[in-house]
Design a protein around this nucleic acid. Sequence first.
DNA 1: CGCCGCATTGACGTTCGTCAAGTCTAGTGG
DNA 2: CCACTAGACTTGACGAACGTCAATGCGGCG
Lengths: 241, 241
Amino acid sequence: MTSMNPQTFKVACSNCNLRELCMPVDLSAADLDRIDALVGNRRKVARGDSLYHNGAEFNSLFAIRTGFFKTSITLEDGREQVTGFQMAGEIMGLDGIVSDRHTCDAVALENAEVCAMPFDKIEELSREVNALQHHVHKIMSREIVREHGVMMMLGSMRAEERLAAFLLNLTTRLHARGFSRSELVLRMTREEIGSYLGLKIETVSRTFTKMVEDGVLEVKQKNLRILKPEALKELVNAPAC
Amino acid sequence: MTSMNPQTFKVACSNCNLRELCMPVDLSAADLDRIDALVGNRRKVARGDSLYHNGAEFNSLFAIRTGFFKTSITLEDGREQVTGFQMAGEIMGLDGIVSDRHTCDAVALENAEVCAMPFDKIEELSREVNALQHHVHKIMSREIVREHGVMMMLGSMRAEERLAAFLLNLTTRLHARGFSRSELVLRMTREEIGSYLGLKIETVSRTFTKMVEDGVLEVKQKNLRILKPEALKELVNAPAC
DNA sequence: CGCCGCATTGACGTTCGTCAAGTCTAGTGG
DNA sequence: CCACTAGACTTGACGAACGTCAATGCGGCG
């Protein structure tokens, strides 16, 4: 066990390889040091465990260092709606600011590590570091815009368009992290994809099958290869989702 | 024309009756004065006109003083998705922060008046007034949580549930502004309701008709009366949408 | 009055959900 | 090493919910 986590050196924003994705660029060395101090502690979350859940006290935002999460809300009758999938460099927990309590569940879909950033410290520091202040605003605005895209998917697209938009979104984000544009491994189940897209698992499965028959995709379990990216794009006239 | 707008006195946050809805409470008189200075200029928007549109340069957030808006995004093929309806005291334009451009269209559904608040001034002042800083964060977080509710509606609810959730949401917000809980006037068309709820206009119409037949609603044009609020609530197990 | 936009209603079609059976894979334990 | 099992996924047959198309109603306004 001990050998699994040999890193005893301090992992700071200043030497984190996700910095461009996560934190503002163009900071002075002094400001960078102060931002390092934001990161209270790092925390491991095992696959299947939750980072926070609906109703829990909100204290911190979380930056994902490694791993993959889903966020979801659940109705009283048990219906679950996945509201998003998050990967390395992305920020979680924004939903908790308004009421000092988290309003959704965040579950790790693979073993993950996050940086916890106490929100009162973020507010304190962003009064002094303008770039941080604006960055926080941008992160929240980006989330609002992302959700507009999801609303467009759910409200106006048919099953095949939704799945195409979803795959293009995933590959775009993975490519920004150095992965292939054409090959990816799904970290979520078909059911979770369906919940996110407002479709039942059978419809997700059938839509994958149709895309394979059309020569657009290769599907082997959770491994996907996109054979015709332009065909996917044609299925979606969407803006930036 | 001149007699239609006789108010030549300065309308400031400090004497605005929407203050509790719009701005932070518990401010010192001095801070309130500074917040007054945020409101650059007021602007009238006639019914059918747009406050901003997709692609336009982002400078300001807008607080609605009077009137009613819709925001929407449009695909290249013309499909429109209404992303929200906004009423007095609510803040518009958050989508523009991330890219310095607005990413949706905001159209007045009735004659409206808004306060334009230059965003750079908001950032400047919120470095000094902590309550304002936290308030801005809360507003953005609240919008994110609201959109989670919309995703739940679009992804997991049937037509009747969606309409019930929509009506309850409207009456709740109207009641917070001093209007009746049981009577309301729809400012939007059936088609706009449908776009927001991911339904076609015929389905919206039929669902209204069914609710009337069930004795839940009275519908006369855009005038609604809710006869059985508990029946509406039973249709929705939703959290806070 | 007559037009126009919005809304309603009916008949019918399509998409997606439901139900049920069956397959595949990974993991477990004999 | 190989049955056995559980969970995830696929596939087919069928049905329900919603979309589409078309006709009609109805208020408001020039």
